[in-house]
Amino acid sequence: MYELNDIVEMKKPHACGTNRWQIIRIGADLKIKCLNCERVVMLTRREFDKRFKKILEKHSN
Rank of each mutant, 00 (worst) to 15 (best):
D6N: 03
D6M: 00
E9C: 03
P13L: 04
V40C: 08
E47P: 10
K31P: 15
E3P: 10
I26Y: 05
C34Q: 01
I32H: 08
T44I: 14
N19W: 00
F48C: 01
R51K: 15
I32K: 02
D29E: 11
L35A: 04
E38N: 11
N5E: 09
R39L: 15
M10F: 02
P13I: 03
E47R: 03
R45K: 12
Q22L: 05
L30R: 04
E3H: 11
D29N: 15
H59F: 05
K50H: 14
R39V: 11
M42K: 14
L43T: 07
W21E: 08
H14W: 01
K12S: 03
M10Y: 01
L43D: 13
N36D: 02
K31E: 14
N61F: 15
N5Y: 09
M1P: 15
K54C: 12
G17S: 04
V40E: 05
K53F: 08
P13D: 07
A28Q: 07
K11M: 03
Q22G: 09
I23P: 04
K11Y: 02
D6E: 00
F48A: 05
H14S: 06
I23Y: 09
M1H: 14
R45M: 13
E3V: 14
K53P: 05
T44S: 15
N19A: 10
N61G: 14
E57P: 11
E47F: 15
K50D: 11
P13Y: 02
N36V: 03
I32Y: 01
E9A: 00
H59T: 10
L30F: 01
M42A: 14
C37G: 01
N19S: 07
G17A: 02
F48D: 02
C37M: 06
N19V: 02
I55T: 10
K33Q: 08
N5C: 03
I32M: 08
H59E: 14
N36F: 12
R46M: 12
L35M: 07
C37H: 01
Y2L: 11
N19M: 05
G27A: 00
N5R: 13
I7W: 12
V8H: 01
C16W: 04
K11H: 09
V40P: 08
D49P: 07
E47Y: 12
I32A: 06
S60G: 07
A15H: 04
D49E: 04
R25T: 07
T18P: 03
L35D: 01
E9V: 00
C16P: 08
K54R: 13
Y2A: 09
R39D: 09
V40Y: 09
R46P: 13
L30Q: 05
R39H: 14
I32N: 08
D49W: 06
E3Y: 02
N5F: 10
Q22Y: 06
N19E: 11
K33W: 13
V40Q: 03
E9G: 00
L35I: 08
D49I: 05
P13W: 02
L43Q: 10
V40I: 02
I32D: 12
M10G: 11
